[in-house]
Every structure is written in C-alpha cells, then in structure tokens.
Design a protein around this nucleic acid. Sequence first.
DNA 1: TTAAAAGTTAGCCGTATGGCAAAGTTTTTC
DNA 2: GAAAAACTTTGCCATACGGCTAACTTTTAA
Lengths: 118, 118
Amino acid sequence: MYLLSRMANHDTLSPLFAALADPTRRAIVAALGSGNKSVSELANDHDMALPSFLKHIDKLERAGVITSHKAGRVRTCHLNPPALRPAQDWLTRESTRWGGALDRLAAHLDATEQETKQ
Amino acid sequence: MYLLSRMANHDTLSPLFAALADPTRRAIVAALGSGNKSVSELANDHDMALPSFLKHIDKLERAGVITSHKAGRVRTCHLNPPALRPAQDWLTRESTRWGGALDRLAAHLDATEQETKQ
DNA sequence: TTAAAAGTTAGCCGTATGGCAAAGTTTTTC
DNA sequence: GAAAAACTTTGCCATACGGCTAACTTTTAA
C-alpha cells in the first residue's frame, strides 16, 4: 500500500531525531539553553577539533534546531525554540496510543481475573 | 572540562533517538501501537526486502523500543512502553529551559520597553 | 515426506557519519 | 602592516547505515 512513499513526504522528523541522536549535539543544545554562544565558546567544552565540531553545528542547523549568524569573524548560535515540537508531538501521540493499549490490556486482565474468580 | 566523557555514560538517548530517526522504523512503532504483529505482517506495509526490513526491527529492539519473541517459525513484535520516556523527558526538560529563556527575553524586552517609555 | 512459509545468515554496494590534520580566509588587534 | 583570532575549506580515514540478492534453516501444512 506504500502510503508513506506517496505523501509528498517533507520528513522533518528524521533529521530532527537524527540531530538529537548524538551526545555532543545534545550538549550543544543544552549549552544554548542558557543563552546564545559563539562557535568557539561552545567548542571549548568538547575535546574535538573545530572542523569536527562544526559538522555538529551544521547538522543541528540543517535540522532547524539552532540558527546562527556571523558578525565579523565570530559566528553566534541560537536555539530555535519551535523546532523540537514535532518530535515532542510524535512522542506524545505514540505514547498516548501505547497508554491506550496498556489500558486495554489492563481491562482485559481485569476481565480475565473476573472470569477466573467465578 | 569534558564532564560528559567522564561520567560512565550509559547513553540510552543516542540509540533511542537514532532508532526514531527513520520513517520506516517510526511506521513500525506506529503499526505496533494497534497491537502486536509478526515480522511479515509488519513488513507487508513496506516495499523492502525482508533482510533490509529486519535490520530496522533489530535496531528498534537494540534501542529497547520494541521486544520480540519467536514461537514456531513466526517472530512476534511488541512495543516496550517505557522506552520512549527518556526521549520525552529530555525534550520536555530542554523545551522548558527554552521556554524559560523566552520568558527571560520577554521580561527583558518588557523592562527595556519600560525604560524607553520613561 | 515433500513443499511452502517465515525467518535468518552471508556478503555485497553506495552513501553518510564522525573523526582528524593541514592549509586558506576574513576580521580584529597590536 | 603584521600577527593573532575565529572560523572555513579541503581532503583523508574508518565505521555505520540502509538497501539488495542469494542461499540457508526451521517449522508447519499438504
């Protein structure tokens, strides 16, 4: 039926989850939580060559998680607050459905217990 | 300071986010939301060779998102409800901090506005 | 008892990822 | 105007990812 492949699939979730699937990048996000920072300020916390570090910045930026602008020779990074929403929404939606399944299981177990008691 | 590299890093978040960073795997999770299914039942919805599909199942399982057991020749897959929690928690924590940052920004703008009004 | 069903294993392929060092560019500072 | 700062580009590396086909194993059904 291949529905997914038919629906003009602007897949924002995949790059978003992928961007978060690395400790360095999550640390960057966490660091930016307390305010904007330059690339080198961010990089100081990570024992990594700058080009390697920049790849992480790029990936976060391409996923929309952060933005950046350059003023003079320094590039400053900012969080993009709405970016995490799709991920949160997906997780919430699925968890809710799982919860529903658990509820149904619980209900079934209850019913079974009632039956076996009789 | 490299704190992260020192703290006996049971990184569950990275494989978890990585597992969700693929449409096929998210579809599997969604499909299992309405009940347990065998590998081939799940695979029917995806135009993909079985070995390729099994890799997705394996990755979900290694990330703890699903479990499976084999009865006879059929392997049945189940959701593992608590698995998504760490991802949700991380997103919630960060979003909250971002919200805080936004609040502080708003407060700052308000303060600035008050100053300029005087 | 053979044949089909349902996975599984092995091996190959091209691209992406996460790392590096070295050299280049643009600003800023002295 | 030279030198330092702050990236940026280039190019390399090993491993992981996401896909395939072909061949194999185990269970079930005819």
